[in-house]
């Protein structure tokens, strides 16, 4: 479904991605792992067109999306939940959802409120009144009502209490159940191993490992080498 092929991305003059290639198939949850500064967020930003890759191509459902505007990428069915969550502080919870809602989405407002009871309770509150966990839930819910075929999540559990992390994991599992593919950037390796069907590891702008859930479980050396802090 998504095919990233040898992309090179830059921030100004600094060369961040050195030919990243990866794939996400229909209905899969794929994790993108790696240390801080490896290029995970830049990869996601390149997919949605916030950063435009200078080389390489990105195909989604068979058509090239590299180089097209961000809102058009979103309309094709890729929703990106950034690390800072991007909740509109001045808008109510309901308004945050309403501006994103599309009729053709399998997730409507009623499905969201059934899966996120906290958001239903808080629907008239402003974005600025929400806790970190509630903001993350709202950010994911808002992406879902946008009707994506593929959801990009950048560090969804960062800074959240363990109980809330479990809730986020359940939500991602529910997203997969509904047939939406997920590309997940996450520091919490337990969360990744729990959710993802396949894993990629990014190191200094290159994909240095890719493997299935089972392969990754037994690849202690790989985890040691690329993911532990030293």
């Amino acid at each position: 479904m998504l095919r990233v092929d040898g992309i090179h991305s830059y921030y100004g003059k600094s060369h961040i991605l050195h030919g990243v290639s990866l794939e996400v198939n229909k209905g899969e949850v794929v994790s993108l792992l790696g240390r801080n500064g490896a290029g995970k967020t830049t990869t996601m930003k390149s997919i949605v067109g916030i950063v435009v890759p200078r080389e390489g191509s990105i195909l989604f459902d068979g058509t090239t999306i590299s180089g097209i505007e961000t809102h058009k990428v979103a309309q094709r069915g890729i929703a990106f939940v950034p690390e800072h969550r991007g909740i509109f502080q001045l808008l109510s919870v309901e308004e945050n959802l309403a501006i994103a809602a599309r009729r053709d989405s399998i997730w409507g407002l009623s499905e969201v409120f059934a899966n996120f009871p906290r958001l239903k309770e808080r629907r008239h509150n402003r974005g600025s009144d929400l806790s970190g966990g509630e903001q993350q839930m709202l950010a994911i819910a808002r992406a879902l009502v946008n009707g994506p075929k593929l959801l990009l999540l950048d560090e969804p559990t960062e800074g959240l209490a363990p109980v809330i992390v479990d809730e986020v994991v359940q939500v991602i599992a529910a997203v997969r159940q509904s047939g939406i593919a997920v590309l997940l950037v996450e520091q919490n390796i337990k969360v990744c191993m729990n959710l993802a069907d396949r894993h990629y590891i990014l190191e200094q702008g290159n994909i240095v490992y890719s493997g299935s859930r089972d392969e990754f479980c037994t690849a202690d050396q790989v985890r040691e080498r690329y993911l532990t802090l030293n």
């Binding site: 916030i50 961000t70 809102h71 058009k72 979103a74 929703a79 991007g86 509109f88 808008l91 946008n146």
Partner: peptide
């Protein structure tokens, strides 16, 4: 109103 906070986030929701 959302646009006065972040035009990038508005674009990410598929709005031109």
């Amino acid at each position: 109103r959302a646009g006065t906070e972040s035009t990038e986030m508005v674009a990410l929701l598929g709005i031109d």
